[in-house]
């Protein structure tokens, strides 16, 4: 039998070269979706294969990798992807945002500000922001070529007419460097402002849809809106029940079947860091109790 053997970071060198070329063009044309010959990965399409390929093409032995899903290092898919790289590339991993050189994420941008030299790799399901308005790639590609984004504004405006608000709560479209309308992946719109003028490099990988795109550091990223309906962030208006943070995005936790809810930071590293620094919310465990966790 052809017993399988695998290269450093799983991908073969030819595949890495192809992905690396795509990443460079993506950085050179901020917000533009570069087609690439995405490979079948040993995890399913839709589960981060795009992000995994971008990370694999970039990762080196001196990198420190953090993987989050929903803001948390301990969700099963984040664990699975982190283990994959620890195994295939032998890289050091961390849960601390500050210490990571490469952060692969699904659906969140960490709360702690990123710094220069860090790379944030987003897993993207549907990279085309116009896809829900126009299913055909041939059409949407033409619209991007001509900067023809009227349809997107019409959609947002129809929301306002119907609901009184722009009814997009996540994957909220942005314009990058005043040219390309871009899908930020299904992050809550709370995170959109963090993309603007970030010191970190942001790379987006969509494996099934075979696209890579990028936001270079210090690049203007504007959430689409209207003068009379400006973009607004949303977070549940409460402090985190564990660390008391009032500026972090919260997960809603159903605590019984009588309507009780609790709100805690979705960014677990941020929350734990705050608790370690002595911050407390109304539900936080005393330090001696935490040891069981």
């Amino acid at each position: 039998m052809n017993a399988p053997t695998y290269n450093f970071a799983y991908l073969d060198e030819q595949t890495k070269r192809m992905i690396r070329r795509a990443i460079l063009k993506a950085i050179a044309i901020p917000g533009y979706q570069v087609p690439f010959a995405s490979r079948e990965m040993p995890m399913p399409y839709g589960w981060g294969t795009g992000g995994v390929q971008v990370t694999a093409a970039m990762l080196g032995p001196s990198d420190v990798l953090k993987v989050i899903d929903q803001g948390s290092d301990d969700t099963t898919n984040a664990i699975s992807i982190r283990k994959f790289f620890a195994k295939t590339a032998g890289v050091a991993t961390t849960t601390h945002t500050e210490d990571a050189t490469v952060i692969q994420t699904r659906h969140r941008i960490p709360e702690a500000p990123l710094h220069a030299g860090q790379v944030l790799v987003y897993q993207v399901p549907i990279p085309e922001p116009l896809r829900f308005l126009e299913p055909r790639e041939t059409e949407t590609r033409r619209m991007h070529a001509l900067s023809e984004y009227g349809l997107m504004h019409v959609k947002l405006y129809e929301d306002i007419a119907r609901f009184g608000h722009i009814a997009t709560a996540y994957a909220y479209p942005v314009k990058v460097n005043a040219r390309y309308v871009m899908d930020p992946s299904p992050t809550p719109k709370f995170d959109n402002p963090k993309m603007d003028n970030s010191p970190a490099l942001q790379l987006f990988g969509a494996g099934r849809e075979k696209r890579i795109y990028a936001i270079p550091p210090y690049t203007t990223v504007v959430s689409l809106d209207f003068q009379d309906h400006p973009f607004e962030r949303y977070r549940f208006d409460a402090p985190c029940a564990l660390c008391g943070a009032e500026d972090a995005y919260l997960d809603e936790i159903v605590t019984d079947d009588k309507g009780s809810r609790m709100f805690v930071c979705s960014d677990t590293d941020y929350c734990e860091g705050r608790q370690a620094a002595g911050h407390r919310g109304k539900e936080s465990a005393a330090p001696w109790e935490k040891a069981h966790g």
């Binding site: 450093f8 060198e13 890495k16 460079l24 950085i27 050179a28 990762l59 080196g60 490099l201 270079p216």
Partner: peptide, 19 residues
Amino acid sequence: DKVLSAQSTFRSVMDAMAR
């Protein structure tokens, strides 16, 4: 070293392109 040299060179080029 084909694998690691290509990786480190790519990172230099990527960093250069990003900055």
